[in-house]
């Protein structure tokens, strides 16, 4: 005959068993999915914000454009010379 303590423990066990079995069904547990981010390197250049109404009307001078991006590879870059041939360490 089960005591009330046993009954309570039994109910608790059943509750957790049901919970763990039903977890995958509701999308919990299982192997963890890492939210991968796609690597986007460069988007198409946009024109930027438009000129103000006064600029378009000609009541104030139109502002000049932005200074451009700094390039990784300078346009005038000359690649360094390759190093000299190594000594192979043997003779013919």
């Amino acid at each position: 005959m089960m005591t009330s303590t046993h009954a309570r423990a039994d109910a608790l066990l059943r509750f957790f068993a049901v919970l763990s079995l039903s977890a995958p069904a509701v999308g919990c547990g299982g192997p963890r999915e890492i939210a991968l981010k796609t690597i986007s390197t460069e988007s198409a250049p946009q024109p930027g914000p438009p000129a103000t109404q006064e600029e378009r009307d000609g009541t104030v001078p139109p502002l000049r454009g932005l200074a451009e991006l700094r390039l990784l590879v300078p346009p005038e870059l000359v690649p360094p010379e390759p190093p000299a041939d190594p000594d192979p360490g043997f003779r013919e």
């Binding site: 988007s43 946009q46 930027g48 932005l66 451009e68 991006l69 700094r70």
Partner: peptide, 13 residues
């Protein structure tokens, strides 16, 4: 500076 230029062009002032 480059991040700023890209943000500006995309309208994110």
């Amino acid at each position: 500076l480059n991040r700023g230029v890209r943000a500006y062009r995309n309208g994110d002032l």
